[in-house]
């Protein structure tokens, strides 16, 4: 009986792993919602430009586009390594 419970508990995992993975990917997807289609490419190219001068990680650049009444603000946040 113990063995059965043990096996069952082991199996419990796959659905909860699925849930955790989905929560992360869906949260990421939602931050990109409503953004213009060019944003991923813009982010990639900005990363390349910055890398010509400083070596930074992929996640060191964070860009967001906020729309206000009649203008949009592109906010670029780059974390540079300590030199």
């Amino acid at each position: 009986m113990k063995l059965l419970e043990f096996l069952k508990r082991e199996r419990k995992k796959s659905a909860s792993v699925a849930k955790e993975r989905l929560q992360i990917i869906v949260a990421h997807q939602r931050t990109q919602r409503g953004q213009p289609d060019y944003m991923p490419l813009l982010e990639k190219e900005l990363l390349e430009v910055i890398r010509r001068y400083v070596q930074i990680d992929d996640d060191a650049v964070n860009i967001t586009l906020d729309s206000e009444d009649n203008c949009s603000v592109l906010e670029l946040n780059v974390t540079l390594p300590k030199s």
Partner: peptide, 10 residues
């Protein structure tokens, strides 16, 4: 029930 499939609440 076996934990192998996402449940509807999730």
């Amino acid at each position: 029930d076996l934990g192998d499939m996402l449940n509807l609440e999730d």
